Simulated assay, not measured.
Amino acid sequence: MSSSPGQRFASRLLFAGWAVLLALLPWWLGLALLFALTVGAVLCTRRSHPWGELCRSGLKWGLPGMLFALQRALGGDLVAWGAALLGALVGYSLVALLESLLLHRVRHSAAPSPEWSDMAMAPIGPPARIIELVPVAWRDAVADMSRESLRYELTAADEGNYRFADGHTLQRLGPRHAFSPQGRWFAANQPAGRGDLLFDRARGRQHRLRGWELCGWDGDDSPWLARHADGVPVPLHQALGQDAPRD
């Protein structure tokens, strides 16, 4: 609430009288009164008491009076006035710092806390992404080997070697195989139900995943695997126990 001009004039006149009073008192007594006002400003401002502003104003107006009493006690010469001016510089800097800290703490403590409904509806964690897997199109290498870039050579009743046109050879694998939709990955069954093998054709790297079954490909042509047919699919890096690759 704003005060009227008459009230503002009366308050300034009162504070001016306070400064004159400190100028007439001994400087050490004025310093003690200013220290008491500092303690009052801290306590009242932290409790949001209206006297907090009164104490801070008393510090600002009373400091010149105390410094005038100090220079008078020092003899009133040039050195005394220099000490008083230096005290004014230091004193008002400390008053400004004190006021800044007190008001910042009051604003921080008075900040409204969010409602429980807002916190309940706030998003938690990274944004969700819907994964739609493309089913694996398995082929039988013995019955159908239509790719000219791939050749399957039987070495036993249920296993053989895959030979690619670029020179890569994958050994001891079953005839059941598949390619990813974009052709980067090649998958084949390991004999005796030991899981699937994944071959990254772009990097020439193969992963023999014991106990994991290929269950589909995601939108960026990456394989997803599960422990069994009804298991929860996970990306390849989780099946390998590695961190997610960075983009």
Results as ranks from 00 to 15, higher is better:
139 R>F: 07
97 L>G: 07
154 L>S: 15
214 L>Y: 02
40 G>E: 09
1 M>N: 14
166 D>H: 02
53 E>M: 00
58 G>M: 02
239 A>W: 06
2 S>F: 12
140 D>K: 10
170 L>N: 05
191 P>S: 10
55 C>D: 10
109 S>R: 15
188 A>V: 05
102 L>I: 11
18 W>E: 08
26 P>E: 01
47 R>N: 04
118 D>Q: 06
159 E>C: 04
247 D>F: 12
52 G>D: 05
101 L>M: 08
245 P>N: 14
198 L>I: 02
174 G>E: 11
7 Q>L: 12
6 G>L: 12
8 R>Q: 15
40 G>Y: 07
95 V>E: 07
236 L>W: 05
185 W>P: 01
97 L>Y: 05
231 G>A: 09
90 V>H: 00
158 D>K: 04
162 Y>E: 09
193 G>Y: 07
90 V>W: 06
69 A>P: 00
8 R>D: 13
61 W>K: 08
57 S>L: 13
54 L>F: 11
161 N>K: 13
228 H>M: 05
43 L>V: 09
79 V>S: 10
127 P>H: 02
184 R>H: 00
83 A>N: 04
24 L>E: 00
18 W>M: 04
210 R>G: 03
199 F>I: 09
212 W>M: 02
197 L>T: 04
205 R>Q: 09
235 P>G: 04
240 L>P: 10
213 E>Q: 13
78 L>I: 11
157 A>T: 04
108 H>L: 09
232 V>Y: 08
215 C>E: 04
18 W>A: 09
43 L>A: 04
155 T>Q: 06
49 H>G: 12
172 R>H: 10
31 L>S: 15
3 S>T: 11
90 V>I: 14
29 L>T: 12
